[in-house]
């Protein structure tokens, strides 16, 4: 596949993040989502990460985040694969809404990074829209460099911090 060629560092980073863009899991996600109605009877704990209709499943099995290259807000092949899974999940689980949180690494000024994070969040939103997810279900917010998940000052951490995270919330919640 071209994923490895594309950005080995990003792949390693993504694998470390609970294998969020693992192809097999993504495929399972699609199959599981199709059978979500009967899933609860087969030893699946509703709401847990092995319930394909749960936000926990979205976060851990589908993959809730995509990563970006330095200064970039364009999606990688790997990012698109993750978002395909997110779109499929959202189209299946229509009771949920999502807030896409854009982030930047610490290598930039505060307000510029806020704008850059917004750009990244919007790239994800646009992609999900293009896959048929309704715009009314997708909000965006940027945290710039205010909320790193990794705290070292090296590329290994920066790569994980340059992210857009799709956070699932129950559909009754509106802005």
């Amino acid at each position: 596949m071209s994923i490895l060629n594309r950005a080995a560092i990003l792949l390693i980073a993504a694998l470390a993040l609970s294998a969020c863009s693992n192809k097999d899991r993504f495929d399972n996600a699609g199959a599981g989502a199709g059978g979500a109605g009967s899933g609860a009877g087969a030893g699946v704990v509703p709401g847990s990460a092995n319930d394909p209709a749960s936000p926990a499943y979205f976060q851990q099995a589908v993959g809730d985040r995509v990563l970006f290259l330095v200064d970039q807000s364009t999606l990688t092949d790997e990012g698109r694969a993750t978002l395909d899974g997110q779109a499929q999940w959202l189209l299946t689980n229509t009771d949920y809404q999502a807030t896409i949180e854009g982030h930047a690494d610490e290598q930039g000024t505060r307000e510029y990074n806020l704008a850059l994070g917004a750009r990244r969040a919007n790239t994800v939103r646009e992609y999900l829209l293009s896959k048929g997810v309704a715009g009314t279900r997708l909000k965006t917010v940027s945290y710039g460099k205010e909320r790193p998940i990794e705290i070292c000052s090296e590329e290994a951490c920066y790569a994980k911090n340059r992210r857009a995270v799709t956070v699932i919330a129950a559909g009754g919640l509106t802005s």
Partner: peptide, 9 residues
């Protein structure tokens, strides 16, 4: 001030 709309600031 800056305002962001649709990812553009």
């Amino acid at each position: 001030y800056s305002m962001e709309q649709g990812g553009n600031t």
